[in-house]
């Protein structure tokens, strides 16, 4: 999943500059050294300990760092494309996203090094998983500005990853505000559904199944489709049969023949749908199978579509919470 897409977007300068002037540079894994002319600190990233400006003024962001830093109002001067996040952006963030210079496409291989150099950044934040770093000429980027690479290794890790992005960009205070709003909302919903959700064994069908192989995506706890619902109190049962690295530790791709084995014990099934509510082809393939219609949860009508399961920041995740609330509402009736 990580390899399929890896880039994104951003903006909002004035506030960030102001925040940068008074912001704290301490953060997880970071140490600070002083220099009156240009303060720097050492930041622990996926690509090692990197000396970065304590208060960056011109940040280039790619991949998962794009939505995180847009929402945290970092001083962005260039971003990668992040199309999958567009439906979740607020009007303000979407306008900023569209206005900002695009220095990379959706894939890491589409990085435009000259455009990055022209943006004259003092910090480059690559929000891509470590394996994808191989597609980027990091040394060339390092000749332009300090490079911090921070990407998720498992889907549910977006929480820590987006925090590190904000920390590196010197906008941790903004990040914490957005995070607090999300957590308050999640706690409210957890309370609302505490009488029904904890008793259910849930399964999730993700949208990355490959119909050309006759497979579907089963997501377990800690995956894109499940981790936000877990914050509301949902319990996704089971685990990957043969765990692999990254997202393969929390999701698998069984044959459609294995649908009864995979989801036969579920009391309820959630499934990913597009932002407009339409069912993706890979999920439709599952739902049109007679094996799906034979599942106990399906026969009881206990299936719940969830939009915005690709949320990867605390700024996006409230939309997912709203979608979960809307879908689960009938559990309370």
């Amino acid at each position: 999943m990580f390899a399929r897409r890896s880039m994104g977007l951003f903006a909002a300068l004035p506030l960030v500059l102001a925040l940068g002037a008074c912001g704290s540079s301490s953060g997880s894994g970071a140490t600070e050294t002083s220099d009156k002319k240009s303060e720097t600190r050492v930041f622990a990233a996926d690509n090692g300990n990197v000396t970065i400006p304590a208060r960056p003024q011109r940040v280039v962001a790619t991949g998962y760092a794009v939505p995180a830093l847009l929402q945290a109002r970092a001083p962005l001067v260039g971003i990668s494309s992040w199309q999958r996040g567009e439906p979740m952006m607020s009007d303000e963030n979407l306008a900023t996203y569209k206005k900002l210079t695009k220095v990379a496409g959706e894939a890491a291989t589409e990085t435009n090094y000259e455009a990055i150099a022209e943006a004259e950044p003092d910090l480059i934040i690559l929000g891509v998983p470590t394996p994808v770093l191989g597609d980027i000429d990091v040394k060339r980027l390092e000749s332009i500005a300090p490079v911090v690479a921070v990407g998720p290794t498992v889907p549910g890790q977006w929480r820590d990853v987006s925090r590190k992005h904000a920390d590196a960009a010197g906008v941790l205070a903004n990040y914490d505000t957005v995070k607090a709003e999300y957590e308050a909302k999640a706690a409210e919903l957890k309370k609302k559904y505490q009488g029904v959700l904890p008793q259910l064994k849930l399964g999730h069908v993700g949208s990355y199944g490959d119909t050309s192989k006759g497979t579907f995506q089963r997501e377990f706890g800690g995956s894109w489709g499940t981790s936000i619902a877990q914050d509301v109190g949902a319990t996704y049962y089971g685990k990957v049969k043969k765990p692999g690295p990254g997202s393969q530790s929390v999701s698998e791709y069984p044959s459609i023949e294995e649908l009864p084995d995979s989801l036969g014990e579920a009391d309820a099934i959630t499934y990913s749908v597009n932002a407009d509510g339409s069912v993706p082809p890979s999920v439709r393939y599952v739902m049109e199978s007679k094996l799906w219609k034979n599942l106990p949860a399906v026969k009881k009508g206990m299936t719940f579509p969830i939009t915005y399961t690709e949320a990867a920041t605390y700024g996006d995740a409230p939309k997912t919470l709203d979608a979960i609330d809307k879908s689960f509402a009938r559990l309370l009736s």
Binding site: D210, T211, S212, K213, G214, T215, S255, I256, Y285, E288, S289
Partner: peptide, 12 residues
């Protein structure tokens, strides 16, 4: 996905 011929997943 199309370019490698397969017989799987065609039943629908």
């Amino acid at each position: 996905f199309w370019s490698v011929g397969t017989l799987a997943g065609r039943e629908q």
